[in-house]
Design a protein around this nucleic acid. Structure first.
Lengths: 337, 337
DNA sequence: ATAAGCTTCCAAAACGTTTTGGAGGCCGGT
DNA sequence: ACCGGCCTCCAAAACGTTTTGGAAGCTTAT
């Protein structure tokens, strides 16, 4: 592990000069700068990360805390999101550190540990909640952070989010255009901002079409995975005036719902439309293909990475936030393709 | 950020004593130890990570480099694996740092950077290849590492792996028992150890049943995702003596294969068996349910974490390795359930 | 009473970097 | 000659921790 000192010795220079040469300070002669550069490359020199952050007080480390209930974290697009973030950060010589903690006390303790021991200089928050203690804490501590998804706070904060509200509104309108009236929504838990937004979009379209009563009746909430999708759909289908469309908050719920529809002996597409959100791989390989919408995770990841870097550089959060349009992907499950 | 010095000052002790008290050295009086302990808890003291690793020369950081081609990393069980690893490591106060790098030059450069800048003290390798330069490099550098999956090397090394060979042998025998003879295998690329092992298991069962010729003919290789599963299955089904069973290396391939079978107008289960590996959520919600096998990712993750910690503690790799039995999950796609 | 041995504590060095506050040499202007 | 200013360079301090090598005080054995 070739150190600055070793380099300096070999070159007959001081540590200071070597350090400044590598850091492009103006007060080192171009000739020596080159000499140092060359020697550094030759010796495969890498500054010792810990030493640098000890001295500078801050480092190049972004933390991502997965809100994971163990045995419960099959987010399919998640790996790709992480890969994109990791790649972008690595390109700028930043590290991504990854923790898992269940929301609640454990989660906050984890954030505190990371901040107070100086391990993390910035955070990316996933699964943002409407009232999110993480946001409050980091805000108060002055630690830069970025949200994947929105939250409810007075403070300006930086986020990237898909336009779930618009996406679900457009989708629901499309279904109404196809003749559907009794359109149910299978929502994720309402403390999650994305769930509330998607539900709001669906409700708007229903209201505009004068279908408030159906909307009132045909709303169900559960965990955003197959199991609850199946359960909630089965319950709705067994009701008095069963829906003709199931607008699900996520693809995983939708896949569960499709199973329930099939079990009820109904044809997905012609009889009952089922739709999701995320465009996970399984959605296009379901039969019929699952109508869904997507925000490419690689793009979101790249964006999150760029934003957190800007935030660490002191950029104003207001200049950074973005609500991105969703791409609608009609397939057979809504009898559109 | 309350420092050791601040604590010492407040207690009227030296930094040394405070440090040693917190570290359970025998040469500090029980009474002072308690006093220090109490004050540390009170002040919410956390040792500064960078300072500690600078001094000790090594820290508590495990790196995981995702072998990701961007836009191509939808590993469904991956998030859960990471969550399990992250949680276990966090419980032992270790950090998990996550990078993404495409296999090849970039990947090796990433490993080198991490090692030489002292950012990572140990590695977890995923998608282990039969001849794996990462293993060679880390071995040579004396950096502790653990493989998820096996590799071909003379050196003893530590790994966790499912018994893919046994699993696919048993599965294939079961299919033979059900009357199948023309059993095809859709393999992942052979440079990946797991692909070779699963293929070997299938081939063994075929050979034992005297079906070498079919095995010869009914082998296809592609990327372990839906697309190639679909493509390879379609090609096999269009051949002269089409298979009656498609044993796929992964669930994602199997889902693609199921699509191809359906397009060919054949009934999955009765006409043609399709099987996978991983037990991803979509497998149980496919129609019919996909016969598969699994190694619970949470368990593997916990095991990997425990092993890398043991390895960092100097334990011999030979004592650590484990080949774990797979749990077979018969479902409708093989007409067993 | 002294030496030896514990027990309990501490000063100082070290890890490798960045940054502060000059120092020395050289030039041009007076 | 001298001064001010520029160009290069550098010694030393600092970040917060762990560890080395004692030191002081007390107890016990001689």
């Amino acid at each position: 592990m070739s150190s600055l000192r070793a380099l300096a010795q070999r070159l007959g220079l001081s540590i200071t000069t070597v350090s400044r040469a590598l850091d492009d300070y103006p007060d080192v002669a171009p000739a020596t700068r080159e000499r140092v550069r060359h020697a550094a490359r030759e010796a495969n020199y890498r500054p010792h990360n810990a030493a640098r952050r000890l001295r500078k007080g801050t480092g190049e480390t972004v933390a991502f805390v997965m809100p994971a209930q163990p045995g419960h974290f099959h987010e399919p697009v998640f790996a790709e999101l992480l890969a994109a973030i990791g790649e972008q950060l690595a390109a700028k010589h930043h590290d991504l550190i990854l923790l898992a903690a269940r929301p609640g006390l454990e989660e906050m303790a984890t954030y505190r540990r990371l901040v107070e021991s100086g391990r993390a200089d910035a955070f990316i928050l996933a699964r943002t909640r409407r009232r999110d203690e993480r946001v409050a804490y980091l805000e108060a501590k002055g630690v830069p952070f970025i949200c994947h998804g929105r939250t409810e706070t007075k403070q300006p904060y930086a986020f990237v989010d898909g336009d779930g509200e618009g996406g679900f509104r457009d989708l629901t309108k499309r279904l109404i255009g196809l003749g559907h009236r009794r359109i149910a929504h299978l929502s994720a838990p309402s403390y999650l901002t994305f769930a509330t937004l998607r539900a709001a979009g669906w409700r708007q379209a229903m209201t505009e079409a004068g279908l408030e009563e159906d909307a009132q009746r045909l709303f169900a909430e559960g965990e955003p995975a197959e199991e609850d999708g199946h359960r909630l759909a089965a319950a709705l289908l067994a009701g008095p005036q069963p829906p003709t469309a199931l607008v699900c908050a996520t693809d995983r719920m939708a896949l569960g719902a499709m199973q329930a529809v099939a079990e009820a002996g109904l044809a997905i597409g012609p009889d009952i439309a089922v739709t999701g959100h995320d465009n996970i791989p399984a959605a296009s390989y379901a039969r019929p293909g699952l109508t869904t919408m997507e925000l490419p995770p690689a793009e979101v990841g790249a964006r999150l990475a760029a934003m957190i870097l800007a935030r660490m550089g002191g950029r104003d959060p207001r200049e950074l936030s973005a609500v991105l349009d969703l791409r609608q992907i009609p397939r057979g499950s809504s009898a559109e393709a």
